[in-house]
């Protein structure tokens, strides 16, 4: 029986988030970060509100956000380990990265589910 370390689970979350971010992130960032603020396309507020307040939209967004945050936590942790050679502070980095992902997930749940 394999050791029950959390590492394989962290890797699965990393992979799921990697797939979702690869497919969804560019178009969402293009719209929210460039196209809408710069007026390349216009979407009126009422319509956007309809789309974004739909329960299905909220659930899909929550899934994407949580997975993407754990993708970030895992990858950034290894970037600090290898890129900056900080593996000796492994415990602090691990706690910081996944802790940040958990806080972010809680914030995402609050924004997406509580205020409806």
């Amino acid at each position: 029986m394999p050791h029950r370390s959390a590492e394989p689970l962290a890797w699965l979350a990393f992979s799921a988030g990697g797939v979702l971010a690869a497919v969804f992130a560019p178009v969402v960032l293009f719209l929210a970060g460039l196209a809408l603020p710069l007026g390349w396309i216009s979407a009126d507020h009422a319509h956007l509100d309809d789309v974004l307040s739909h329960l299905l939209t909220r659930i899909v967004l929550l899934g994407i956000c949580v997975a993407a945050l754990f993708h970030f936590a895992h990858r950034f942790r290894y970037t600090l380990y290898d890129g900056l050679q900080l593996a000796r502070y492994g415990t602090v980095i691990t706690a910081g990265c996944y802790g940040l992902a958990m806080l972010g997930s809680a914030a995402a749940a609050a924004v997406l589910l509580l205020n409806r």
């Binding site: 029986m1 394999p2 029950r4 689970l9």
Partner: peptide, 18 residues
């Protein structure tokens, strides 16, 4: 192999300690 290892770990959680 990472995928295999991750799936085996999940299985061990589902099946409980052997």
């Amino acid at each position: 192999y990472k995928l295999t290892a991750a799936i085996e770990t999940l299985k061990s959680y589902v099946e409980g300690p052997s």
